[in-house]
Design a binder for these strands. Structure first.
Lengths: 185, 185
DNA sequence: AGAAAGGGAGAACGTGCGTTCTCCATGCTG
DNA sequence: CAGCATGGAGAACGCACGTTCTCCCTTTCT
């Protein structure tokens, strides 16, 4: 088996297990079993578990923001694009196996012990925040709105994860709509 | 040493350690060292670590909601009371050792493996949500507003925890103020 | 064909930790 | 004083898991 595909398979298994069960609850042996990549090869590709965790978060970050941006870009109107963020959240919350935001969960698990994980969580949230900044600027709205939308989105992710409901996305969307109207005047 | 005070000392130490370092990163021996309560006694009081964790979350829930309600009750005006929630969040975020919401962090750590912890997180968030429901009803505002305020508060807690800044509380307060004005008419 | 390198399966090693046990000191009861 | 319960200190036990090692098979190069 090719080394690049072994890496992908390992990351596929790691993502499903880490996200679904939590990072600390998953052993390297579980990753081996789910991926079919032997322990020897796993440790060649990722010299320690922490590096597998980092690679998991990094790849998921790229994909997550890509999926969001792709969905949002389908909207032409700048204000609609802002609301489309919350529509996408709703469809994400409804996916099988949804269990909250991977970065918020990772922060809860490892934020106090791993500086690398904390840095990756901050980087991910910073990138999402800047993405919202861009959408708000494109709509010609004041920058302060982006922070408020960000908080709504984060609150929705956390609440959807804990309750298992998609409703927070719609509530956040409605709040965002009101804030847009109030801010645009 | 009295059994009741041993229990309090154990819980004091457990709370500081679990909240500050994460639950899984803290061993029963750490709790013993920090509390001065011997292992034998610890296991008499809490037959397993999970029960110590539950007692920690439960006691913190009562205290957390008590402190919030106490602060909010100092405001006479019903609409001001709603905004006072976010003022209290800001002072909480600024406390030494603040590291985000204990329940959100616990959910990230143990939500996938411990049904008891998940239930306690849901109970805590449900109680906070109902508290907001009450404040909104007292102000004569429509119930849908409470859900939006709840999401703002949750987003602020998560973001303050991850970034270590108190700013999310002010951003959430400003968003809440706008939603109040937009909803009140 | 023979040698050598690579990889898989899984045993082995070391450590951390939840939990229990041993041993001993202390203080109370008859 | 004898005896007994209580509790502390810390060793001991069992297990899980991150990491490494052993053994064997396959493939490839000469």
């Amino acid at each position: 088996m090719d080394s690049a595909t072994a890496r992908e398979q390992a990351l596929d298994a790691a993502e499903e297990l880490f996200y679904g069960r939590g990072i600390q609850a998953v052993g390297m042996d579980d990753v081996r079993g789910a991926s079919g990549v032997s322990l020897k090869r796993l440790y060649q590709l990722f010299p320690a578990k922490e590096q597998l965790v980092e690679a998991y978060l990094e790849r998921r970050d790229v994909r997550w923001r890509g999926r969001l941006a792709e969905h949002v870009a389908r909207c032409g109107d700048p204000q609609e694009r802002i609301l489309a963020v919350f529509d996408w959240l709703e469809s994400w919350f409804g996916e099988d196996g949804f269990r909250g935001c991977a970065w918020i969960n990772s922060y809860g698990e490892l934020g106090a012990t791993s500086a690398r994980v904390t840095a990756q969580v901050r980087a991910h949230k910073g990138a999402f925040r800047r993405y919202l900044d861009g959408l708000v600027a494109d709509a010609g709205l004041p920058g302060a709105l982006a922070g408020q939308l960000f908080l709504l989105a984060e609150g929705a992710m956390v609440t959807a994860g804990i309750t298992g409901s998609t409703a927070p996305a719609r509530e956040a969307r409605e709040a965002a709509r009101l804030l847009l109207r109030a801010t645009a005047r």
